[in-house]
Nucleic acid binder design. Sequence first.
DNA 1: ATACTTAAAGTAAAAAGTACTATAAGTAAA
DNA 2: TTTACTTATAGTACTTTTTACTTTAAGTAT
Lengths: 241, 241
Amino acid sequence: MKIPSSYYISDYKLPLEEYFVFGLSVDCVVFGYHEGEIKVLLVQRDAEPFKGHWALIGDLVEPDQNLRDAANNVLEKLTGLKNIYMKQFFTFGSVDRHPVGRVVTVGYFSLVNSIDYHPIASSWAKSAEWFNINDLPELAFDHQNILSKGIETLKNEVRHKPTGFELLPSKFTLLELQQLYEALLGYKFDKSNFRKKILEMNILKPLNEVKEKVSHRPAKLFKFDEKRYRALEKEGFSFEL
Amino acid sequence: MKIPSSYYISDYKLPLEEYFVFGLSVDCVVFGYHEGEIKVLLVQRDAEPFKGHWALIGDLVEPDQNLRDAANNVLEKLTGLKNIYMKQFFTFGSVDRHPVGRVVTVGYFSLVNSIDYHPIASSWAKSAEWFNINDLPELAFDHQNILSKGIETLKNEVRHKPTGFELLPSKFTLLELQQLYEALLGYKFDKSNFRKKILEMNILKPLNEVKEKVSHRPAKLFKFDEKRYRALEKEGFSFEL
DNA sequence: ATACTTAAAGTAAAAAGTACTATAAGTAAA
DNA sequence: TTTACTTATAGTACTTTTTACTTTAAGTAT
């Protein structure tokens, strides 16, 4: 790359060209929820470095590719899913975090509402699996660190934003919602009070449907009313659980 | 850079070396507080591109420098300050955000407890000034965007974490604290109730000192008790205002 | 018909939040 | 030295929210 001389300013130790030597990647912490457990999607690497180790899904960013596109791409390649909730949470750039060179990685977390997706094996991944976030294998690179920060961010975010709904199917019962939050936050709610609190927020749209194929009284199904939430948020409402 | 052939994996469009072409920078949103107003520190550029425009303080990261070090460096060079509260909040990487090439920038926000620091002119900055966050000039690059995100992050964070204290001198009165929060959150508190609420949290250490040189009854001074806060946080306490 | 499970509504007591009042402690001006 | 003025600090009555618990309803399975 040629940089116009007018752009040169005095303080740099190196010629300006030599600052354009960073590699950039994205890594996605993909969260799922199944039967009371928060899961994360990991792949087993089939390429050096760290061949055989479990890792987050991620990839180098193309020089002409935006970060979010890169992250969406990674997820779509592995799961076939588009339009998934995805949020940048932190950037990891330790000098020695990657054995090949200076690679800075931008961490995204995404939430999928079913763990039934069939992860697709790729040239660099032997297999893909969902792991309970409390029972994780050893990870490649600094992915342990990235994953921890991702989990922390998720746990923090679900308390103040209605992000958690992304982990449930679009139609859910109040008990399912409660159990999700119990898994996320690590403590129990009183059933009656949880129901009262969440309904009074007015961000759930009751459906004229009930849960099917249960051997007891079926519960009503609800949908998260995003439009309503956005409107309430503008008036100063803030989601808290 | 030479990359071992064993690291090559099939999917890449380009030779692996050609992914190491990114520039990396840090930009700091430096917040200050003075007489009821939240301020941000901007510099007027004295170098291309955007010569003459106001901008956030920031710089390219050296190839062997960690992100946080780069951010601390930038701040120290301009203000002479070390050990300032600093937090990474978002990474901006649009393909076309920088006219010279692909430069990804990591945004940090920092909070300083006085705006009396004498910003130091540097080779690329004509002057430095504190601006009220509600009355900002036009900014260089995508700094408007970075700054907005920084402000949003700050306003969000101060509601759930005791971050706000970083904007006050280490000794402060309850009224000063209240006024800071009124500026941050944009609404008024009842004096008596604010005092009661914050004191009952047990995270303020009362000092045996009072505010001096005031022409009325002087208020007691307090310190934020970080140790205590950390301990309470572990027990499940969470700061909310 | 009966037992069992979960849904859903209700309720009383406790806790927290709100609006407001009263008094104390200082400075400054008369 | 008195008086006016400003802000600190404590207190209080009232309202709202939260919490812990009880009751009843609605379904399935035997």
